[in-house]
Simulated scan of single mutants.
Amino acid sequence: MSTAVVVPGSFDPITNGHLDVVERVARRFDHVVVAVLVNPGKHGMFTLEERIDLVETCVDHLDDVEVDAFEGLLVDFCRDRGIGCIAKGLRGVGDFDYELQMARMNTRIGDVETLFLPASPDAVHVSSSLVKEVARLGGTIEHAVPEVVARALHDKLADG
């Protein structure tokens, strides 16, 4: 039985909601892999290398948490590493509907189970897209992302 779990995402950028999920599963599993999605068809605000660096900085305080990138099917990434569980945070019903379909597919094609964690009350409203939009419009994002991410986001927007 695997005592490892994968927490996947694009993390463009990592938010306090993402970090909450990683911290919660790190208390329950021996090893956590934060898997940063490589999506060649999508150009994010941060490069893959920047996203990995930000995630590594944000999880540095946690033992037995590693950060890696993946492209293609998440179940293949899990199979290659001998990991049988994916952890996902859910903010609401919309997340659940989409993620339940994905979880059933992952179990069917890869024998990988998905663990759903309800978002913490402080993070239920937080998404990477919303954080970027609020930052673009000059709003406060410091409550939604770690300090290093807020600085990186402000720097990225200042650079054009």
Score class of each variant (00 low, 15 high):
residue 148 V to F: 05
residue 93 V to L: 12
residue 140 T to R: 11
residue 48 L to V: 10
residue 39 N to M: 01
residue 96 F to G: 07
residue 114 T to W: 13
residue 126 V to Y: 03
residue 121 P to Q: 04
residue 67 V to Y: 07
residue 103 A to S: 02
residue 109 I to H: 10
residue 7 V to C: 14
residue 26 A to T: 05
residue 59 V to Y: 00
residue 151 R to F: 07
residue 98 Y to Q: 04
residue 120 S to V: 05
residue 121 P to D: 10
residue 81 R to K: 04
residue 62 L to P: 08
residue 54 L to E: 12
residue 84 G to R: 07
residue 57 T to I: 08
residue 156 K to E: 01
residue 75 V to D: 03
residue 136 R to L: 03
residue 116 F to Y: 00
residue 55 V to Q: 10
residue 40 P to S: 03
residue 2 S to V: 08
residue 80 D to W: 11
residue 96 F to M: 12
residue 159 D to K: 14
residue 16 N to K: 12
residue 35 A to F: 12
residue 107 T to Y: 13
residue 153 L to D: 09
residue 102 M to K: 03
residue 4 A to K: 01
residue 92 G to I: 03
residue 14 I to N: 04
residue 7 V to E: 12
residue 131 V to C: 06
residue 110 G to P: 07
residue 115 L to I: 13
residue 114 T to H: 12
residue 155 D to V: 07
residue 117 L to D: 01
residue 137 L to M: 12
residue 59 V to F: 00
residue 27 R to G: 04
residue 16 N to I: 10
residue 21 V to M: 15
residue 155 D to A: 15
residue 87 A to V: 11
residue 122 D to S: 14
residue 21 V to L: 15
residue 135 A to E: 12
residue 118 P to N: 05
residue 51 R to L: 00
residue 37 L to M: 11
residue 27 R to F: 03
residue 116 F to W: 01
residue 98 Y to G: 01
residue 135 A to G: 08
residue 33 V to N: 04
residue 36 V to P: 15
residue 15 T to Q: 06
residue 78 C to F: 15
residue 26 A to P: 03
residue 42 K to F: 10
residue 85 C to V: 14
residue 34 V to Q: 02
residue 77 F to Y: 15
residue 75 V to M: 06
residue 147 E to G: 10
residue 95 D to W: 03
residue 100 L to T: 06
residue 81 R to Q: 03
residue 30 D to A: 05
residue 34 V to H: 01
residue 145 V to I: 02
residue 15 T to E: 07
residue 124 V to L: 04
residue 102 M to L: 12
residue 5 V to L: 05
residue 153 L to T: 14
residue 80 D to A: 15
residue 28 R to D: 09
residue 73 L to V: 08
residue 136 R to K: 09
residue 24 R to H: 12
residue 71 E to C: 10
residue 71 E to G: 14
residue 49 E to M: 09
residue 118 P to R: 02
residue 32 V to T: 05
residue 57 T to E: 13
residue 67 V to R: 11
residue 52 I to C: 14
residue 39 N to W: 01
residue 56 E to F: 08
residue 47 T to L: 11
residue 39 N to D: 15
residue 102 M to G: 02
residue 144 A to W: 10
residue 46 F to A: 11
residue 95 D to Y: 03
residue 133 E to T: 04
residue 14 I to M: 15
residue 28 R to Q: 13
residue 68 D to E: 15
residue 105 M to A: 13
residue 105 M to G: 06
residue 41 G to E: 14
residue 100 L to G: 04
residue 86 I to K: 08
residue 61 H to F: 02
